[in-house]
Design a binder for these strands. Sequence first.
DNA 1: GTAGGATGCTAAC
DNA 2: TTAGCCTCCTACG
Length: 270
Amino acid sequence: MPEGHTIHRLAQDHAERFGNREVRVTSPQGKFADSAALLDGNPLTTAEAHGKHLFLGFGEADVWIHIHLGLFGKYTFGDAPVPPPTDTVRLRLATATAYADLRGPTTCALVTEGEKQAIHDRLGPDPLRAQDNGEAAWARVSRSRTTVAALLMDQKVIAGVGNVYRAEVLFRHGIDPYRLGRDLTRPEWDAMWSDLAELMREGVRNNRIDTVRPEHTPEAMGRPPRVDDHGGEVYVYRRAQQPCHICGGEIRTAGLAARNLFWCPACQQR
DNA sequence: GTAGGATGCTAAC
DNA sequence: TTAGCCTCCTACG
């Protein structure tokens, strides 16, 4: 779930349900209780995403709730009647008509405006932010001796890409994950950047990751639809040892920087 | 019932 | 490079 598209969608969902409404802010689990009490009853005025970071702003209060889901964090949205919270709910926002429950985040903390800015400053450009472009990312990539697979996961280089988008965008552009940043061409990078922007925008719309082109969908190719709890239709992510949708060769997997990498060696050449 | 893994990241070695 | 954090779900006895 939690790649950049999830967080941008969460920002939208918060704005829709709670924007400019006074919200009850609580921490049934307790870890955020003191901070929640400070904000309780204020209107939610801003919900903003940068990469995988979510910021909630409350009216005059000069503080933000900074949320990072990490690997396990999850949001549940619902309508009234608001059910009693379970004891793992770190943060609950609620009005008379809607609620949002946050469980298991890596980060849920109050930050000042300055601390928020520091987070933005250490993040790279985000394909989902209108004001961002791939220029600064290319400057880093083009002089890096790191693999493009590692660079795509580095939030200082490009914010919001996770393990699924990494594997899929490399496949879509026929790029070997082990190629070095400095060996990429400018057109290759530009194409990946704009492709990510489109794929991730669709991810926000549908709240899932789909990367398979129309001509390669299960219906178009007469194969059974994918069954995987992560949802969308993909080319290589978590398809190790299965046949590539395009060439029929075997999808490979390997560990890279503590994460599982997936790719098709035939379609993705050096 | 238990083990293991998962779309993430950081601090410590 | 590894351990640690946080939660939920599946597979396996």
